[in-house]
């Protein structure tokens, strides 16, 4: 069980039964599924969006879409993979919309009206904060598939087989993308980490 997603896992048969009820409009069944997977979806959304409110919006939208499209789930496939794929797509859509809005806001708002990025840094926190920011920027700049595999592996703490189901790629591809992501991050963060590239 993931450290960040402490909900109990449900068996495939139980999930399929719940989905059938959801299709029939069963509110309780829908709430049960939401309760089981809401944190996993939140972690993935937050990892992409890095904002709590945006992540919660993405969580709601993911489960609303699940309610509408429950009939499209194919029994036998990984439900978690299917749901996380939806969450990933919704979060990426949010991210793109937010980035566009942010760019527009930055180009139209006078500099003096923009809020300061951070308050005065405390002694000792500065280096750690710099590293964290550099790390976040480097993850952000990874190619999309590398970024998704890295996020799912390290933030969602998914196994490679779960990542392959969520991204509809082979396990070998998932491992390869993860390796490339780590290498790229290492290369980009070499000056900050004080290691040779």
């Amino acid at each position: 069980m993931s450290e960040l997603s402490p909900e109990p896992q449900a068996g495939a048969a139980a999930i399929e039964a719940l989905l059938e009820k959801v299709q029939a409009g069963d509110r309780e069944a829908f709430m049960t599924i939401t309760r089981l997977y809401q944190r996993k979806v939140f972690v993935l959304a937050y990892s992409i969006l890095r904002d709590r409110e945006d992540a919660l919006d993405a969580v709601q939208e993911t489960f609303l879409r699940l309610y509408q499209k429950a009939g499209l789930y194919r029994p036998g496939n990984s439900f978690q993979g299917w749901l996380l794929q939806m969450a990933k797509n919704i979060s990426i859509d949010h991210y793109r919309r937010n980035r566009k809005k942010k760019q527009e806001w930055e180009t139209t708002t006078p500099v003096e009206e923009m809020p300061l990025a951070a308050g005065p840094a405390r002694e000792g926190d500065s280096a750690a904060a710099d590293l964290r920011q550099a790390f976040a920027r480097s993850v952000e700049s990874l190619a999309e598939r590398q970024k998704m595999v890295f996020i799912m592996r390290h933030y969602n703490e998914l196994q490679f087989n779960e990542i392959s189901e969520a991204m509809k790629i082979s396990i070998g591809t998932a491992k390869s993308l993860h390796f490339k992501a780590v290498q790229n991050l290492r290369k980009r963060l070499a000056p900050v980490l004080g290691i040779g590239s």
């Binding site: 450290e3 939140f42 937050y46 709590r52 969580v59 509408q68 933030y155």
Partner: peptide
């Protein structure tokens, strides 16, 4: 460090109320 950040963000969410809220919206 990022996981810590996610944990802190998750702690502020009312996970008990969220399923009912989403169900209301869906219905």
């Amino acid at each position: 460090a990022v996981r810590d950040e996610i944990r802190r963000a998750a702690e502020a969410v009312d996970w008990q109320a969220l399923p009912a809220l989403i169900a209301d919206r869906a219905l």
